[in-house]
Structure formats: structure tokens, C-alpha cells
Design a protein around this nucleic acid. Structure first.
Lengths: 339, 339
DNA sequence: CTGAAAGCGCTAACAA
DNA sequence: TTGTTAGCGCTTTCAG
């Protein structure tokens, strides 16, 4: 039974003839603690229900300086990998009684910077982020303003802890797989160069080349998008010396590469081998199932959430331990054996 | 230069020797309006910067009863269709100075109900929702508590306005396409039966059957998931009377159907034709490009946002006009002509 | 077992 | 051009 005007503990108090204090206590479940009589409790609850009382979080937040709000920053929600993170974060945190302010910074570091400022405004209790720009954006947070945990990406010298995949190893594993299959002409299409995830993957590529004394190398690209994958692969396949294998550093890039390969009339794996990082669920449904490396993204997210909640609970900033999980190679049908 | 303790307009006022009012006015850009001197303005701004002042939204919200916060409810973020909506909402609303509380209700109506309650607690100014459960969950909002707009799904008798695709027409168009290609044995794998989007699509299926006097009909399934699509297609393909075409009522369902079809050793479109609704970007990269129907989801989202902002602006509840957009058939290679 | 009153940070009458 | 003050809704000492 909603009433006109605003229903507050005050209106409930007036109607029941009780004090604000008592009403507040009953409505917050601290009735037992203060030994409030059953009768009073019942009266408050009944009146609150009758009036359709809804607590005002802004007031609570102002008073308690705790908002039960967590901020999540993702490069974009329009990418299965990130939206899976977002989905997990949302569900798990709501279950813990938190509310999540979520934002898609459109892969724009400037946007990210503004977002953090906005979040700081919102009495947020913690931040989870997949960073997009440089460490500079997170300076304010490093100073301990708000507990923060990075997911899958991070800054090496930063104090902000992270849970991430071993990106170096991801690429390295794929390279070993290719080399074992006799490939030496391996091209790599990378994503956003400023991201640590990309940097480590590239290191894995280069390190494998070095380990096996492979002279050929081809490294191009600059964003984790299908368009970029398409364009770079187009260019790559026009080269006089064609590679025998392509490693796409993400599945978004992969999709573009596949389109380019098809347009050039080439078959996988007969004409060219292809591998990727991410192991998205749709890889199984492509014309040729693609060998990929699976990142335990749900687990990473769960751990990051746990780490954040721990940080928030700790009254003293305990030294956080970064966590790095290993990826798993999923061999499918996209790599040809070259004798 | 962050200070210890909390920086507020009070600390800034003390340090500058000015009043709270003046500081507030300068910091809110109303300095001109009150003809505050350049010198004062500069002093306030400098001190605020020096102290590292960050506005406290909880206090602002409490005082102004406006939070600049919008709530978004999606069935799940782990679905490209919904996460595209989320991405668009996030970007567009942040650009307008809003912050968005986003939540994945895991396709659970009960979860949705709780979420709405939680949102109501958060002094939210408006809600965008892709509803999951029944109309009952939105009762409180219908009463005008908070301006709300539905995206792509809705309730017929509800006062809450919506922007949606013409789901009936989507399915109907696909059916016409199949019938034109000589199909009469057409199976339909549906999604969540309680959603209006599914209901209209099914109506489109049945209506087309009726129009063309087709006796055969096969309607199964109950959720917009790949697993469901897989299982139902598995079962379907074991039937003695096999269909010549399958219509998947979403791309998630489609992916599962494709897997089942491949496992049964059938080829598309030679052994069976397949069409779907959604036209996800990856359809172009599948072994056989799938004929589908494209929903203008970004446009729908944009319109819904506009509608919501209008609603929020209107001091009197102007009668909202629902918007229904038409989908477009994208013919690819997955439908065989049957003479 | 219950209440009075102060105050979280901010804005907007109303005064000057 | 600037300041005083009340109060948004809530919790929490401190006091019965």
C-alpha cells in the first residue's frame, strides 16, 4: 500500500508513536540486540509494510560512509570475454549484497580516467578493473583511496594487486604447438599494444622464435577487434613470403583473420594453419574448429572478487599476493603437420 | 595533493575563509549566476585542487533527491545480444552524465524481483529493463515509482512503455522465406516461453503455417541457450519424420542446433536448411553462413534511452508511445531450394 | 526496553 | 557579492 509523499522511518515512527531510533533498529535487524519487545517489532514491521517503506541508501551511505557499491571498469562490454567477466562480477557481488556500477569505457583511456573520477564520487567501496590505459589513470587508487583489484591485466610496478592469466605462457604454448607441427613461418596478429596482456603474449611469441632459432617473424596489428584482424590478415596474405601459420592473439582478431583467409580462397589447415587465444565457445562451431588456448576467466574473476572483498575487509592494507593462472591448450583441427 | 581525513566543502571553506555556500556555488558552476568574484572563484578552485576535493554524491543525492543514476536489468550479460545493449546503455548514459547500476539477473525472475527492490533503494532516477519474469515483478514501477522503459521485451497490458522489434514479423519473414524455397516440414526451436519476444516469434511461426495450410508443425525448447538448442535438435533429428528446415528463435539456440546437426553427420543446406533470429556478427564466419533476421538492437537501445530521458524530464506523465521496429531478413547460404 | 539529539556532506531559501 | 541556517534520511552515542 504505497502512500503519497515520501515514506521514511520518520513517517513510520509518527504513525506508530515510536521513536526514530526504535524504528531504525527494528528495520535493521538489530532489534534483538537492543531487546526490543515483540509487540513493538511487529508494530513497526506492519506499519513499514503498510506504508511501503523503502530504505534510502543515499542517507545510509552518507551516515555510515559505506555504500555497498562496487565499481567495475571494462574495456568494452561488447566482447564476449569481457562481458563474461561482467556477468560473473554482477551475479557474485549481488549475492553478497553489493550493487555494481558498471561501465564500458569504449577502449578509451581518456574515458577510463573520467570514469575513475566519477566512481570516486560515488562512495564506492571497491573497484574491479580490466585496465585500458596507462598506469597513470590508476594513480589516485594506488594511493589507497579505494581498494582495487585488476582482472587479467595489470601494471608491473603498481601496488594494485591482480589476478591474471599467464599471457606469456599462453602464446608460448601455441608457438610450441606450431613448432612441433613443423612450422617456422609463423605470423602473429596482435591486439592493443599498450595492454600488458598483449605485451606478454608478444613476448611469448618472440621468445619461442628465439628458442627455436627461427629467423622469420611477422608481427602486426594494434587492436583486439575483428576489423583489425581482417585488415592485417588481408595485408599479410599479400606478402610475397607467406607464413604457414597465423597466431591471432585474441578470438576477436581470429574472426577477422578467418574472413580474410576465406576471401583469399585459402583453406585451413591445408593452405594455412591458424591458432588463437581465448577459446571462445563459438570456436567449436566454426567451419574449421580452431586450436586455441583457454583462459580460466570465470575462475580469475571469482578470485579477483574474493581478493577485493578481502582487501575491503582488511583494516590494515595487508600485502596482497598477485595470482597468475595458467592457460590450457585446446588442440583442434586448424594446425597442419608439416614434415 | 590528497590530504588525510575527509576533504569536504567544509574543509575547503575553512581553509579559504569563505562560507560553505560560496564554495558550493563555485564548485557547482553557479558562480556566474551569483556573481562571485574572479578572485574568490580562483581561491576556491585552487584550494579544492590542493586538498584533492571529491564531491560526495551520497550527500548530493540525499539533499537534491536526484542521483544521476540509472538502473539496467538484463537477463544475462553472457549473451552477445544483451551485452550489446548493456554496452550501448553504459556509453550513452555516461556521456549524459549518468552512472549506471547494471545487473545480470541470471535469467531468474526471482532474482529480477529482488533487483528491482534493491534498485528502488538506490534513489535511482530511471530504469531500463529487458524483463525476464512476469509483469508482477514490475508492479511497483508501474505505479509510477520510477520512470521505466522496456527494451525489446514488454508486457501488453502494462503502462510501462517499450521499444522493441516486431518479433512476430521476424519469425514470419523467415517462414515466408522458407516456404518460398519449397519447405513445408519446418521445425521451430524456441526460447524462454514466458518472454513476449518468444511468444510473438512463435505466433509468427504458427501464423505462417496456417496461412500456407501446412499440416506439419514441431515446436520445442524452452530457453535461449546453446545447450537447449543442442539438446532439442538432437531429439528432433531422431524423429522418424525429419523436417527439411529448422528455425532457431535465437542465435544462441542456433549454435547448439549446428553442433547437433554436425554430430548427426548432416550437411547444411543439402540435408537440412537452417535459419535463425538475431544475425550475430559471427554468423558470417560459420562453416555455412546462416540466413537470419537482423534486429536493429543498437537503434532500439538508443530510442529506449531517449524515451527514458524524456519520461524523466516530463513533470507530468505524458502518455508514452511504444515503438516497434521491423527486422530485416539477411539471406545467406543455409536454405536449400526444394522443387 | 526506548528516546533525544547530533551530525554525515551538501544545497537553497532567506538575509545581508 | 557573500553568509547563515535549516534540513534531506539515517544511525548512534548517551541517557534514561
Amino acid at each position: 500500500m504505497a502512500m503519497q509523499g515520501n515514506v521514511t522511518i520518520k513517517t513510520v515512527a509518527q504513525e506508530t508513536g515510536l521513536s526514530l531510533t526504535t524504528v531504525s533498529r527494528v528495520l535493521n535487524g538489530t532489534a534483538e540486540k537492543y531487546r526490543i519487545s515483540e509487540a513493538t517489532q511487529a508494530a513497526v514491521l506492519a506499519e513499514a509494510k503498510k506504508q511501503g517503506y523503502i530504505p534510502n541508501m543515499a542517507a545510509k551511505t552518507l551516515r555510515l560512509n559505506k555504500s555497498r557499491t562496487i565499481g567495475l571498469i571494462v574495456p568494452t562490454l561488447n566482447n564476449p570475454f569481457f562481458s563474461l567477466v561482467a556477468s560473473t562480477v554482477s551475479k557474485l557481488l549481488y549475492a553478497q549484497g553489493y550493487v555494481v556500477l558498471m561501465s564500458d569505457c569504449a577502449n578509451d583511456p581518456e574515458e577510463e580516467r573520467k570514469l575513475i573520477k566519477t566512481f570516486l564520487t560515488q562512495n564506492i567501496e571497491g573497484i574491479l578493473a580490466i585496465p585500458v590505459g596507462g598506469r597513470k589513470n590508476y594513480e589516485l587508487l594506488e594511493k589507497g583511496g579505494v581498494p582495487t583489484v585488476f582482472i587479467d591485466r595489470f601494471f608491473e610496478e603498481s601496488k594494485i594487486p591482480y589476478v591474471a592469466t599467464d599471457h606469456f605462457d599462453s602464446a608460448f604454448k601455441l608457438m610450441e604447438h606450431l613448432v612441433e607441427h613443423g612450422h617456422t613461418l609463423i605470423a602473429c596478429i596482435q591486439g592493443d599494444v599498450q595492454t600488458i596482456s598483449n605485451q606478454y603474449r608478444v613476448k611469448g611469441y618472440l621468445e619461442a622464435l628465439k628458442k627455436h632459432n627461427i629467423g622469420y617473424s611477422y608481427l602486426k596489428g594494434g587492436s583486439f577487434t575483428t576489423d583489425e584482424g581482417y585488415l592485417e590478415t588481408k595485408i599479410l596474405l599479400k606478402q610475397s613470403q607467406k607464413p604457414t601459420a597465423i597466431m591471432a592473439l585474441s578470438d576477436t582478431i581470429l574472426l577477422g583473420a578467418l574472413k580474410a583467409i576465406r576471401e583469399e580462397g585459402m583453406s585451413i589447415p591445408e593452405d594455412i594453419s591458424v591458432v588463437s587465444i581465448d577459446n571462445s565457445s563459438y570456436l567449436d562451431f566454426l567451419s574449421v574448429p580452431i586450436t586455441s588456448v583457454s583462459h580460466p576467466i570465470t575462475e580469475i574473476t571469482q578470485l579477483a572478487i574474493k581478493m577485493l572483498l578481502d582487501q575491503m575487509g582488511a583494516n590494515q592494507a595487508s600485502a596482497p599476493t598477485n595470482i597468475v593462472l595458467e592457460a590450457k591448450l585446446i588442440a583442434r583441427k586448424s594446425v597442419q603437420y608439416i614434415p
